[in-house]
Amino acid sequence: MVLRKDGTALLEKLDGQDFDFEDGWRLSGTGSWQLTDDDGGQVVRLALTARTRLESRSPATATDASTPEPPSTHSWSFCVDRDQHDELKLFFFYGDPDIGNTYVMTRETGS
Rank of each mutant, 00 (worst) to 15 (best):
V43K: 04
Q84S: 14
L11Q: 00
D23T: 15
M105F: 12
I99A: 14
A65L: 12
E22W: 09
D98F: 11
D64S: 13
W33V: 00
T36C: 01
F19G: 00
R53G: 14
G95N: 08
T106R: 08
R53C: 03
L35A: 03
A60Y: 12
E108S: 08
Q34N: 08
T52H: 07
M105Y: 06
Q34M: 04
T36W: 00
E22L: 12
Q17N: 03
K5D: 07
A50M: 02
H85Q: 15
G110S: 12
A47S: 09
L10E: 10
F92E: 07
P68N: 11
P68K: 08
F91S: 14
R26I: 00
R26F: 04
E69T: 15
C79W: 05
G95Y: 12
R53Y: 09
R82S: 09
S75Y: 11
A50Q: 06
R57M: 14
I99L: 14
W33N: 01
K13T: 04
D15R: 06
S56K: 07
S28N: 06
T106A: 11
L27P: 00
F93E: 13
Q17M: 15
S77H: 06
L90N: 00
D39I: 10
L14W: 03
F91N: 07
W33C: 00
D98S: 14
D20G: 00
P70M: 09
Y103S: 09
K13R: 09
D37H: 03
Y94A: 01
R107Y: 06
K13D: 14
G29C: 05
L35C: 03
S58N: 14
E22Q: 10
A50I: 02
G95R: 04
R51I: 06
D98L: 11
G31P: 03
T61I: 14
E69M: 12
H74A: 14
R45T: 04
D86L: 11
G40F: 13
G41K: 04
T73E: 14
T73W: 06
D23M: 11
L88M: 10
E22G: 05
S75L: 05
F93D: 07
D81W: 12
G29E: 02
K5V: 04
N101M: 09
T63E: 12
D15V: 07
D64A: 15
R57T: 14
T61F: 13
Q17P: 02
T106V: 13
E69S: 13
L11H: 01
R82W: 10
N101K: 07
D18E: 13
A60D: 15
G95A: 13
P97M: 11
D96L: 10
D39M: 08
T36D: 02
Y94L: 02
K5W: 00
